[in-house]
């Protein structure tokens, strides 16, 4: 038989979701189990900030990633992992823009399930992320772009530190209202292609209100890469994360 791994007997802790007030005085109310922090930071020894960019097909994820890379590559060392449900098209598009070295872009094949590869089975993405971090050390920023998913797409916290969910303002009149893990819980919601919204009869103020209602205090940015090709607001948000991380590690 294989050698056994020593195991420590664990204590079973039970707690109700809201065990703050027990009607039975003799029972000491248990503290609720600690909930994982929605935006838990990366491991303390890693300088590289990993950011996931997700959203439906055609939302403008790849164009946004290209803009981020174009703007931030002068300031930071960065790399991109693309998730390809079908082809290497996203990776080739980024390389075709000519501002990323092929060594800084990796494509991960997702086998018909773009959401599986960023959420419940992150093995291939982690493999690519860690290989890039190792070969390009030190890396400040690593962007993982998901394949086009739907409103339920959400990155695993085992893969990225923060995530951006992008959707098309012109296609998304109901997206913000319907919500879903991506819209509700992403660290940053980007409502993209705002220039097309009036053409589709979408009122941006309605979107802003619906997104605000679903996202509580989490930020939402409105962008149009046609009007502002460098996506300055998104780039600033990412700069803030990188600087925060550097300060935290005393490398500012």
């Amino acid at each position: 038989m294989p050698p056994k791994t020593p195991s420590t007997p664990g204590k079973t802790v039970r707690a109700k979701a809201s065990a703050t007030a027990s009607p039975i005085a003799s029972v000491t109310p248990l503290k609720p189990l600690a909930q994982p922090e929605p935006s838990a930071g990366p491991p303390p020894n890693r300088i590289c900030v990993r950011i996931g960019v997700g959203g439906p097909v055609g939302a403008g994820k790849t164009s946004l990633v290209a803009a981020i890379c174009r703007v931030l590559r002068a300031e930071y060392s960065l790399a991109v992992v693309t998730n390809e449900p079908q082809t290497r098209e996203d990776a080739d598009f980024l390389l075709g823009e000519g501002f990323l070295d092929p060594a800084h872009v990796r494509a991960v094949q997702t086998g018909c399930s773009p959401q599986t590869a960023i959420r419940e089975d992150i093995a291939a993405n982690l493999d690519a992320v860690e290989a890039l971090e190792e070969s390009l050390d030190p890396l400040d920023l690593l962007v993982v772009e998901s394949g086009g998913g739907d409103l339920t797409a959400l990155f695993s916290r085992g893969l990225v530190d923060r995530q951006i969910f992008v959707f098309d303002a012109a296609a998304g009149a109901r997206a913000a209202r319907k919500g879903g893990p991506g819209v509700d819980r992403a660290d940053l919601l980007v409502v993209n292609k705002t220039d097309l919204a009036p053409l589709a009869g979408v009122d941006l103020e309605d979107l802003r209100r619906d997104a605000g209602a679903r996202r509580e205090s989490r930020p939402t940015l409105f962008t149009s890469l046609t009007e502002h090709p460098d996506a300055p607001a998104v780039a600033d948000w990412i700069r803030g994360l990188i600087e925060e991380r550097r300060t935290l590690l005393g490398r500012g």
Binding site: T110, G111, S113
Partner: peptide
């Protein structure tokens, strides 16, 4: 097949 070891992307 849900064990997170990457097999979902392979059709063999």
């Amino acid at each position: 097949s849900r064990f997170p070891a990457g097999a979902h992307a392979y059709s063999g």
